[in-house]
Design a protein around this nucleic acid. Sequence first.
DNA 1: ATCAATCTTGACTGATTGGTCAACTGTGTT
DNA 2: AACACAGTTGACCAATCAGTCAAGATTGAT
Lengths: 211, 211
Amino acid sequence: MGNLKVAKAHIRAENERIILDAAEAIFARHGFRGSTMQMIADQANLPKANVHYYFASKKELYRRVVEQIFGIWLQAANSFEQSDNPAEALRRYIEQKMEISRLRKNGSKVWANEVINGAPIIQDFLENQLTEWTDGRIEMIQKWIDDKKIRPINPRWLLYMIWATTQHYADFTHQVETLNAAEPLSKEQWEDATETVFQIIWAGLVPKSGT
Amino acid sequence: MGNLKVAKAHIRAENERIILDAAEAIFARHGFRGSTMQMIADQANLPKANVHYYFASKKELYRRVVEQIFGIWLQAANSFEQSDNPAEALRRYIEQKMEISRLRKNGSKVWANEVINGAPIIQDFLENQLTEWTDGRIEMIQKWIDDKKIRPINPRWLLYMIWATTQHYADFTHQVETLNAAEPLSKEQWEDATETVFQIIWAGLVPKSGT
DNA sequence: ATCAATCTTGACTGATTGGTCAACTGTGTT
DNA sequence: AACACAGTTGACCAATCAGTCAAGATTGAT
């Protein structure tokens, strides 16, 4: 009796995963309106009607994709934990965000698309979780400043700088690769870029020296 | 005789401008597929058929919008001229790019949208003009490094950092404003953000001191 | 006044697409 | 074997939208 539900739930969970992954890829490449349920169905290797069996509407499917991305984003955010060693905290956060840009390009692109278009779907996320998280980190950075661990700059602009720089490698992958002789960045290039981003920002925060 | 053509050309030029501006605003908010010719026509206060009189197809209109943006981008690029004073050149370039982010949000958003989606329309721009320009600037930055005017970093990642950081304020306006109590950034905030971006990057490039 | 050219516009059309539906399949339980 | 129920699927429909068209308005030159 319970077995039946579990077995069925397993199929459901698996198909939902397949469809969500397909949808993320399609939404990333074509945006919300540019993606069709048929494209997503093809990407998932399922008939369109079957996609609608699992997700009532295109909007619902999109919302699920964006929610999933926000979850990953928050996870990375945690790597930026309370710490009185700014260099370590910043390094960890930048590395984490660059890693997400490398491995979860599609998610980042969907998120960017959503925000560029005024966040019609996930405005509540921005207003609640994101605002709360940002305020917390700003306080933390301010404390570093008060303790003279870094130079006095506006913490908010620093955060935006880190977000922008790291996400650039996901959102603008196409541009980055075009400027890299149409090749994806190699492992070495990713590491070098990450290190450079950290080095410039960190040296920019502390007048004395690097690392 | 010539007069006729001039008079007509004037009307044409004016209407084309109105439509291009309207299209830029609509494409920025809704992306290519999300925008309808009807929306653009309404924004321009013209009947839809009239828009089609000036621009044969939606794609052509879009291409014209993107080309216009690329022109502005190149113009800013020129402010980053050959100079053996890195601090001055960088400051000028960052200020210019932040100014564009402030005044030409829509253009930047359309560009971002286009690149995120794999640049289906303007791939040739990326491959030619952008590649050429980028290579030139990289050489220039490398020279600064060789002359020990700035620390040895990979010039390419520095350029991406500047692009990403400055364009963030245009592309992610909605997020920035949500995190600013739903208010646009004030004149002072724009100036402060610009100065902070420059200060961090510049101090990050030169271990010795600021400015 | 006449004419030719540009410009304007409401009405229409063919193609696309989100979503529905009813018939069907497979599986595990009794 | 009979049944219940999750899952599958092709065919269909109503809405939307890019683009067309043909009839008319405007303008300026002669």
